[in-house]
Write a protein that binds this DNA or RNA. Structure first.
Length: 446
RNA sequence: CGGGAUGUGGCUCAGUUUGGUAGAGCGCUGCGUUCGGGACGCAGAGGCCGUGGGUUCGAAUCCCGCCAUCCCGACCA
């Protein structure tokens, strides 16, 4: 934390993780036709007020700028908690014809929310994120965009972060302020608590109407465009820590690890060892993010240090190895040791990094499956929730009152209605026994 | 925002009950010996005891306000 309440400092190693995440995601956004822009950090109050649900949702947690220099401002400005309103105002100026659509914008920035309770990474007052904002001619196009971006997030989490996620839709109670529908990827942490790891919203034309964004269609009729927004934040770093970490510290997925391999000399005072270690680092650097530690800390200290930092692979090189023209590779996830002929080093590193990514995914998936239950009625659900953290699947009639009730009696909230719906038991609501509308996953959230 | 707890070298904490010149371990600096799972010896540096006020001859210690952090709950999208 910094000296400002709830605000976190990202030091180089942590920021490097974010940069790697940014780089991969940004590529995925651009591959699907999105362009980066930058909007101001400040929003005039009148602009924030334009969409009723939106302002009601965010007003309690925005910070205000009321003074510039020595002058009190005629209109106060809020520090953006999210930028829908700024994008909408801008869209209202630049969209006039169907030829102007779609607009596929994204921005990387930080936002500020005056949270009552903060938690490092998971809920900080200011946090880094990307927010995509898009405008489309038709509802269907916007719905497809919402889904496409959710799929990109899910793919990123599963393939790059080795983090299984459940794609689904949020209930009315849990959806974004001003959205018609909110979609989410829900991940389960090591301790069974769930974390919303990314969201994608479909707005319909609600904001467009509030901000008077219109375009002329091919047949010369005035239309409202349909809108989406979607975001992933530094919270995802918290998700990585809590999905894969163990008692020795971080375990980082190779794709985003600032250092994929760390080269550690053994008996480094012996002639040639440091030179050999440096040479191996230089070799590996051509293909992998590779670090080296030539400090005079003991080897044991270094082992612990880089395990704590979650470096996926450790390379040990000492006099005994040099005699045999080999080195030792040790995996962070399983701590397995491999004696590797130097001629095969790059190939072995490549294979092991891929195996680590796969194994991390499997482990996380197994943890999630082990902690997933089905509840047929409220008593069962409470019984499960009282003794476990995890996902509880059950049928639900759609009544919001029951969401509040379950929060009250069992401490769980609805995480999502998964895309992959199932019909459990006799398809009756877990609370009232009436015919159900959807299967919901309940859980304790961070 | 409610209930509870805590702020003392970089970190973890003792000292506060019973007011009397600020302590430990780790870390840090230098030198030497070590080095295949968090090495060791010697010598050093480092603190307006969260902050503002009050009581007192004297406050880390007692009283009041504020700020921050942690746990539980509410809020959260």
């Amino acid at each position: 934390y910094s000296s400002v309440r709830g605000c976190m400092i990202l030091r180089p190693y942590g920021y490097a993780i974010w940069e790697n995440i940014q780089h991969i995601l940004d590529g995925m956004f651009k591959d699907t036709g999105h362009e980066n822009v930058y909007m101001p950090m400040l929003i005039p109050e009148s602009l924030l007020q334009k969409e009723k649900d939106h302002v009601e949702g965010f007003a309690p947690e925005v910070a205000w700028v009321t003074q510039g220099g020595n002058e009190t401002l005629a209109e106060r400005l809020c520090v953006r908690p999210t930028s829908e309103t700024l994008f909408c105002e801008h869209f209202s100026h630049i969209i006039t014809s169907y030829r102007d659509l779609p607009k596929l914008y994204n921005q990387w920035c930080s936002v500020l929310r005056w949270e009552k309770t903060t938690r490092p990474f998971l809920r900080t007052a200011e946090f880094l994120w990307q927010e995509g904002h898009t405008m489309h001619a038709t509802a269907q196009e916007a719905i497809d965009e919402t889904e496409q971006m959710l799929n990109i997030y899910a793919q990123f989490c599963q393939e790059q972060l080795s983090m299984p996620v459940i794609k689904g839709r949020k209930t009315e109670k849990e959806k974004f302020a001003g959205a018609e529908a909110t979609y989410t990827i829900e991940a389960m942490m090591h301790d069974g608590k769930s974390l919303q790891s990314g969201t994608s919203h479909y707005f319909g034309d609600g904001f467009a109407r509030a901000f008077h964004i219109t375009y002329t269609d091919k047949d010369n009729t005035l239309q409202y465009p349909h809108q989406t927004s979607w975001g992933v934040s530094t919270r995802i770093i918290g998700a990585i820590i809590m999905t894969h970490g163990d008692d020795s510290g971080l375990v980082l997925p190779p794709a985003i690890a600032p250092m994929q391999v760390v080269v550690l000399p053994i008996a480094q005072q012996k002639p040639g060892v440091c030179e050999k270690a440096t040479e191996l680092q230089a070799r590996l650097k051509k293909r992998f993010r590779t670090g080296i530690d030539l400090s005079d800390n003991s080897p044991g200290w270094k082992f612990s240090q880089y395990e704590m930092k979650g470096v996926p692979l450790r390379l040990e090189i000492g006099p005994k190895d040099m005699e045999k023209d080999q080195c030792v590779l040790v995996r962070r996830d399983t701590r397995e040791k491999y004696f590797v002929p130097l001629a095969e080093l790059e190939e072995k590193v490549e294979v092991l990094l891929a195996e680590i990514a796969k194994n991390l995914y499997q482990r996380a998936l197994e943890n999630r499956e082990r902690r997933t239950w089905v509840a047929a009625n409220m008593d069962e659900l409470k019984e499960i929730a009282d003794h476990n953290n995890g996902f509880i699947k059950s049928m639900w009639c759609g009544d919001e009152a029951f969401e509040r009730k379950l929060k009250e009696v069992a401490g769980v909230s609805s995480r999502c209605m998964p895309y992959q719906q199932e019909v459990l038991g006799e398809n009756r609501c877990v609370c009232c026994g009436k015919p159900a509308k959807a299967m919901v996953i309940w859980g304790k959230a961070y």
